[in-house]
Design a binder for these strands. Structure first.
Lengths: 126, 126
DNA sequence: CCGAATCCACAACGATACTG
DNA sequence: CAGTATCGTTGTGGATTCGG
């Protein structure tokens, strides 16, 4: 993604490890649902069911799955309150907030070029 | 993604249309491979096979598929030179370049938080 | 309310072969 | 070289159910 021409030296081994990890993270995070969840959370704290309503169209399963993944990568914080009924709250960590900036960028991009894209599609589909 | 509480008025119909289109674009573009292709292109012009080498691990099929998608949405320009053998060159359009900025942002984010993430994973996996 | 697990339909994917 | 088509496999994702 950034590193090229790595040789056989010890420092290069580190570079390769970092690069493979970076690709892995990219595969996890650069995905539609993860972005939507990050957008939905913003700087709020939301319960599972609220998040489910917020990210419309997402299934229970995919939401948990992606939340686990984001939690594992340290983007999302999960707080469990052992009440009855149980209460689980999700919020963005600092790294999560940092990524939100670029996700916001993409949202802005989408709206800015909406017209362009609509036109491009019409032209292409003809 | 941005629009909420839309009612039944004509302007709201437009908002809904724009929003559904925005979600569609999001689904198309917010994907691992699209990002990698955009990164690979940067401000260069690359042939199909060069692109294939650049985005390592991508299959012939997935590359064409994503290139078509990006072309359809007007992010990528496809130039065909009817020589023998044929020569096809891909480059980013202006909207594509604009999106590249945010993709770059994500790459930067990845490297910045690599350590954080590695730690978070270790903690989670325990 | 939250989440894990099961089942299964169907889409995604890679490999391969074929065309201009 | 670039692209399309087909095929078989894998995997994804939704519905449902059960448990804490």
């Amino acid at each position: 993604m950034v590193t090229k021409q790595v040789g056989g030296s010890p420092e290069d081994a580190d570079l390769r490890r970092a690069d493979s990890l970076a690709r892995e993270i990219f595969s996890d995070v650069a995905n539609k649902r993860a972005f939507l969840i990050i957008e939905a959370l913003g700087e709020r704290t939301l319960r599972f069911s609220e998040l489910r309503d917020e990210v419309e169209g997402i299934s229970h399963k995919m939401l948990t799955q992606n939340l686990r993944m984001l939690e594992r990568n340290g983007l999302v914080r999960r707080a469990v309150y052992p009440t009855v009924p149980p209460r689980v709250e999700y919020s963005l960590t600092e790294p999560g907030q940092a990524l939100r900036a670029t996700v916001d960028g993409m949202c802005g991009w989408t709206h800015q070029y909406l017209g362009h894209i609509e036109d491009a599609r019409r032209r292409f589909d003809a």
